[in-house]
Design a protein around this nucleic acid. Structure first.
Lengths: 349, 349
DNA sequence: CTGTTAGCGCTTTCAG
DNA sequence: CTGAAAGCGCTAACAG
């Protein structure tokens, strides 16, 4: 009977060490910091790992080192394609980092978000990515006290918790108003559902700029708390037509809503863009192909996910560049047929 | 100086035990199986936990018990709304189970999927949910040997690995062909991108039924390896018109493609449904609102996610109902304007 | 119903 | 550059 009886049949660090003729700690080092191990040992260890098919036990590693390789990501919704694009960026960027992502879904609820922040922090994550800049005071305090990199994404603020990558919803909305004005529209409306913080900022941006230009009218602001969808867009547009039929253009707080407006307008024989200019927000793939093609604001969702991960990875590394901690990305207006009365080109790309 | 110096400031099971005047193991039991602890102790322990703000250390628990509470979920894509709906079902169902989900993205690659299966299994997950029934032989072997519940989702097979919740892609496609026939169409086409196993099964289902009815023509099968999207739908439809302009109806392998067909047909002044019947697959929200509204096959995506989690939870519990291990759900044809030449109702709900 | 003992597999010192 | 010793925080397996 061997001196030490193994209960599990799992291949452990000790097995590898024995196979390679070194001690366990050397194998451990070889995995985490290969440059600190002499080349000959390194080769033997690598060979032993391959031969035995060793896979590190993350829980054991986490327990011993008091740190995990888990990057927590809190988003308001996983079905919203805005966030699924962010997620894609996160997945693509994570590959080179050795981290693993864990996603949580706050359902647009600040208190659920706070709970999730707690849960994640209890796991000692390697980093945490949260959506928006409007955490609860407690949530914010928890994040400020966290001993891991924290990245806020999807919006900008003067007062970030730690790192940040986002774009200005306020400015984007204002630029839409100006675009409508330039195209000759004079009575802009705005439609919005799911009044989450970022939607609200867009509504303010719209309002401010319209006021500045002297074309704001509160009758032309139609909102609902319900979730954003194509169906909601149809409904909100019907509401708008009932309340303020004189509206000559409409900024929809996202593309789903805008698509609904486009479809409902077609049913009512309201000509877009001649009788009604339409602009969405986000630039979903479909928006370029619908008839008429949809003017919208392209938001850097994929890039946001990618950069957020990169920021965490950099922060985890040795030298942190202070200059890189806040990334202000650009959201760009994409002008298509739905907002250009003088449009003469093709209806789709 | 106290007998035992704590290095970390984390609240541990021992702290709670001391506070409640019991031993650590009793606290541990109280958390995992409260009914095995006497009521008075239980109350004192609960109070101590609350007072101290104790949060269990998952890694330590995983190490000691050789099991995690992680439910692994492998999907081909996180942006595809089909899978994000599944995900939503998973998240909603997981809440009551005490498990946590970890998502991985195989990018429609069988070999990446195999790697992910390996990675997950190395973490000793509480359960594993995989998409489809076409794992690599090695992947399948790994899953068969896994000592945790495994659920295959999104398709059906006679030969599941362990548990299964899905619906028949083959039958769904066949029912679309019959529907076209009933509506008077006689020259059906099929468009498909991203030829993943389930898309291929739908193509076979279409082909088989069309052959049975004597209306199959290979010229009317247009496929591409590229990813499925609205833009691809426009493109494939253009290809179809070039190859087989006599097609009088088209089954699109998913709604994105179908939307593209609808838009491209409008641009070409091809009247739907009179000159061309269109049917999609999946029933995205937008499909009910587009003009004309889109006939499609409603797939039980949310429910699939929900049930998959439920199956795992049940399997993890004490008594497993053998009868419940395979869940065959129903995908239902939703007939709307785009496939009914005689349509007289409203264009949208 | 409760406690004792002995690790789970890895990493952190601190010495060589 | 390498190793020995000592846990990380929790739970399995017995005993009482």
């Amino acid at each position: 009977m061997p001196a030490k009886t193994k209960h599990s049949n799992r291949v452990t660090l000790d097995d590898v060490a024995r196979e390679a003729g070194v001690s366990a700690i050397t194998v451990s080092r070889c995995i985490r910091a290969p440059e600190k191990v002499a080349a000959p040992s390194r080769l033997r260890i690598q060979a032993a790992i391959d031969r035995l098919g060793y896979v590190p036990h993350m829980a054991a590693s986490a327990l011993a080192s008091r740190r995990t390789n888990v990057l927590g990501l809190i988003v308001p919704s996983v079905t919203n394609s805005v966030f699924s694009d962010v997620l894609l960026g996160v997945y693509d960027a994570i590959e080179t980092t050795g981290l693993s992502v864990q996603i949580a879904n706050s359902r647009y609820s600040p208190s659920e978000e706070e709970t999730l922040i707690r849960t994640f922090l209890a796991q000692r994550p390697a980093g945490l990515i949260v959506s928006g800049v409007d955490q609860t005071p407690t949530g914010r305090a928890l994040l400020e006290a966290a001993d891991c990199p924290v990245v806020q994404i999807m919006d900008v603020t003067d007062d970030p918790i730690d790192m940040l990558v986002g774009f200005s919803h306020f400015d984007s909305a204002a630029s839409v108003v100006r675009h409508f004005m330039e195209q000759g529209y004079r009575r802009p409306a705005i439609l919005s559902a799911r009044m989450d913080p970022r939607s609200q900022v867009r509504v303010s941006g719209f309002r401010r700029e319209a006021e500045r230009l002297g074309i704001f009218d509160p009758r032309r602001v139609v909102t609902t708390q319900g979730r954003s969808s194509v169906g909601t867009g149809c409904q909100l547009f019907a509401d708008l037509m009932a309340r303020a039929p004189d509206a000559d253009c409409v900024f929809c707080n996202n593309d789903d809503l805008a698509l609904g407006v486009l479809f409902e307008a077609a049913r009512r024989n309201i000509r877009v863009p001649e009788a009604l200019g339409v602009c969405g927000f986000n630039d979903l793939e479909i928006s370029a192909y619908v008839n008429p093609s949809l003017t919208t604001v392209a938001t850097p969702r994929y890039r946001t996910g990618q950069e957020a991960v990169r920021l965490v990875a950099v922060a985890l590394g040795p030298g942190v560049e202070e200059a890189e901690r806040h990334l202000r990305l650009e959201a760009k207006l994409v002008v298509r047929a739905s907002s250009q009365p003088g449009w003469t080109g093709p209806t789709a790309p």
